[in-house]
Design a binder for these strands. Structure first.
Lengths: 215, 215
DNA sequence: GTCTATAGCTTGATAGAC
DNA sequence: GTCTATCAAGCTATAGAC
């Protein structure tokens, strides 16, 4: 995202980094502008309120991601025609762009996903922002999943999606808990290891509900 | 936790409620003492720094929970002897006390779990606090899981545990995203619905790695 | 677009009377 | 244990010169 080092981008980059580390309320405008080596007044000039900086940080990468993810979903649906897309490919389309960017996209992307992880689990900020940016996409994926598991209870599928969302976002959080817990065997930063395991884990979880409520 | 309405407890109850809603940095000491209808100076007198209030909030329920969860784990291990405990019972022992308290324990417990969800996904607070309070227990559960899936790759099991942790804590977060997404079909507050589905979902996820790396 | 200066407020924390 | 009073520091946000 370091396209051009305009003042706006310098502020957004600094804000992204600091919000990721300490959360929305843990960062002041002055810390952001200091980190960006920019005058404090410029934050208000370019963005307005602090919340507007936060929204701008969220927005600039959301569009890129959503485009990639919808593309992957459409591709796997097209490949499978006239059958429904296989479940594991749908899950992969949902997660691939995220894990890949977090892994190889550079520090800015890593910070971005750490913020996503925080707000997804935050009572106040979570509902509003995630709904705004990611719900349309979530609905597309859920309808693809329903198409490939038509006999399943929709309620089950929503909850499974919820578990997927939680497992995925914790992976982005940037906490080293899994590293400590495994005595270094599983570094939290090893997103290739996650990628390899998340898709089969989640796919198997969904499949446990293939026809559970037919009895 | 409203054992006795001492000043200390009033402060802890208020802090718990506010931290759950807005996070550690989103709440001031004065907001806490106002909510508690108590003089601002008493927070310092009883606890010291703001972080000490937070630690006290975390600590008072952690012990109760961990005792219950270890008890359930030991019970299901004993019942299964001389065989290893079944996987689904281990997962249930891990999650039951949490979901049950969150569901039926009252507003204080609900707030407590919302805080857990936040810090579990928070880069700065997450590693330290979760490690401190919950890692010994996590290790006990992982070793029980390993005993029932001895042929599995330990790395796989750690990552599966990580996915479990994410799915579980998002459930506690108190965001209404799943309610909105499902047009009210799945209220986020319906923890019975979660309980029913989380255990089979996670169990199936783990079982996908029963012998994956034998090929 | 950028900077200085500042208004007006809230913060965490404490000293000292009761 | 509780309260009043207060400090120094930091905060958001803006007005106005350049």
């Amino acid at each position: 995202m370091s396209d051009k080092k305009t003042t706006k981008n310098l502020i957004l980059d600094a804000a992204e980094k600091l919000f990721a580390a300490r959360g929305f309320y843990g960062v002041s405008i002055r810390q952001i502008t200091t980190e960006a080596s920019v005058d404090p007044a410029l934050a208000s000039y370019h963005f307005g309120k602090k919340k507007d900086i936060f929204d701008a940080v969220m927005l600039r990468r959301a569009e890129i991601l959503n485009r990639e993810r919808i593309q992957m979903l459409d591709d796997c649906i097209r490949r499978a025609k006239p059958n429904p897309a296989p479940l594991n490919e749908i899950i992969d389309a949902f997660t691939h762009a995220l894990l890949n960017r977090s892994n190889k996209g550079g520090a800015g992307w890593k910070s971005y996903f750490a913020i996503i992880a925080q707000i997804n689990n935050h009572a106040e900020l979570g509902g509003e922002i995630m709904t705004q940016y990611f719900d349309p996409l979530a609905k597309k994926f859920l309808s693809a999943i329903h198409a490939t598991m038509p006999e399943s209870n929709p309620e089950d599928l929503y909850w499974c999606y919820h578990f997927l969302s939680g497992a995925l976002t914790l992976t982005f959080s940037g906490t080293d808990r899994i590293s400590n817990l495994s005595n270094g065997l599983c570094p939290a930063s090893d997103l290739d290891a996650v990628h390899e395991r998340l898709v089969p884990f989640i796919t198997a979880g969904f499949e446990a509900f293939k026809a559970k409520y037919s009895n």
